[in-house]
Amino acid sequence: MRSAGGGRYREPLVAKSYDMIAQGSKSFAAASWLFDRATRERVWLLYAWCRRCDDIADGQTLGGELGDQSGISGRVKAIRALTRRALDGEPTADVGFDAFGQVASECGLTMEMADDVIAGFELDAAGWRPRGEKDLARYCYHVAGAVGVMMARVMGVPKDDSATLDRACDLGLAFQLANIARDLDEDDAADRCYLPMEWLAEEDIEPGQLMKPHHRWEVAELANRLVLKMDKHLRAAKLGTVGLPFRSRWAVLSAANIYGAIGYEVRRLGRDAWNHRVVVSRFEKLRIIAASFFEALRNNPIPPDEMPEWTRADILIEVRMAGPIPEPDFKPLPDEE
């Protein structure tokens, strides 16, 4: 029989989802406790699917060290198949996907929303790299902006509230820009680069030489460009919190400010930003959460000097025009030949 959550009881599914967020993202885990109980549990369920998809695609465990990158195309195909099963209420034998089936049934999440996220993994599987800023915007949308939209739906934002969903997308874009800036060295070690090739050409950085010592000043400048974009999207995202319930507003602002702190620290460190992984200490997180309480209480966000160049509407046009990433060919199993 088909049922939400693949037949699992909801309570243990929520508990396992929390374990995943607690181990996989201490920043999100800390901010999530600020939500009311119902929203908090749904955020955990959605996070469990995001974390599991990321781990499967990258061959890692709870966001740890990147694993073997061979066979990624097959793993992405499995992600889509399991997601479809979860949405159909069928058991997947995987907590993360059953969690998605549960929260999707409660909040009206669709396969189209999930496909927008999975497309980001397909880009990685295809060895894709951005040529210009439009390509970078598209990638950031797939891996984070689309998640921001789903998170907004989980918080109860109506599907026709485009203005708030646009700001939720901005928050996801800001998070991913901070991630890219922080993880330039880790991505380079995995033969990945999310900086537009046009940016690299402008700085005369040769292929394969991004993280070499003699290019550290140029890399710091490129990271600064990412952080400037992050800042603009972060400020725009805060405009969308005005209509949220107080606890949701506090949680979103806390997460925004914690991730913003990561980006700003990368900028402050300059060429030394990749000597060790930039993190926000537990004490600093508590300080940010406390400051975000008063920011949420004032509920009067200051808009950016100018709104971001990247908009959800423009990105979606690019995404829909580009069409889906073609699925790779697969050899049939021996008994199917």
Rank of each mutant, 00 (worst) to 15 (best):
G6E: 02
V14S: 04
V14R: 03
V14T: 10
V14F: 04
S17K: 00
S17G: 03
M20W: 03
S25G: 06
A29N: 15
A31H: 03
F35C: 06
D36K: 13
D36Y: 05
R42C: 01
L46W: 08
L46V: 05
W49G: 01
C50M: 01
C50H: 00
A57C: 08
D58Q: 07
D58P: 06
L62A: 14
L62G: 07
G63Y: 06
E65P: 10
L66E: 14
D68Q: 14
S73A: 14
A81N: 12
E90D: 14
P91C: 12
T92M: 03
F100A: 02
G101V: 00
V103E: 01
V103H: 09
C107T: 10
T110P: 04
E112C: 04
E112Q: 10
M113E: 15
D115Q: 15
D115N: 15
D116Y: 06
A119H: 08
G120K: 00
A125F: 03
P130W: 00
A137Y: 06
Y139F: 15
V143W: 01
G145C: 03
G148V: 00
A152Y: 00
V154T: 10
V154W: 02
P158H: 06
D160R: 06
D161R: 10
A163C: 08
C169S: 09
F175R: 06
F175D: 05
Q176T: 07
L177P: 01
D183I: 05
D185M: 12
D185S: 13
R192A: 08
Y194W: 14
E198N: 13
E202H: 13
E202M: 14
D204P: 06
E206Q: 15
Q209H: 14
K212Y: 15
P213V: 06
R216H: 13
E218V: 08
E221A: 15
R225P: 06
L226F: 06
R235H: 15
L239I: 07
G240K: 01
T241L: 01
T241H: 07
A251Y: 11
V252F: 02
S254K: 02
N257G: 03
I258R: 02
Y259P: 00
L269Q: 10
V280L: 05
E284T: 13
L286Q: 09
I289Y: 01
F294L: 14
A296T: 00
R298G: 07
P303Y: 06
P303T: 08
E306S: 14
M307Y: 15
P308N: 07
W310Y: 13
R312Y: 08
I315C: 07
E318I: 04
V319E: 12
I325E: 12
F330R: 11
F330S: 15
P332S: 11
P332C: 11
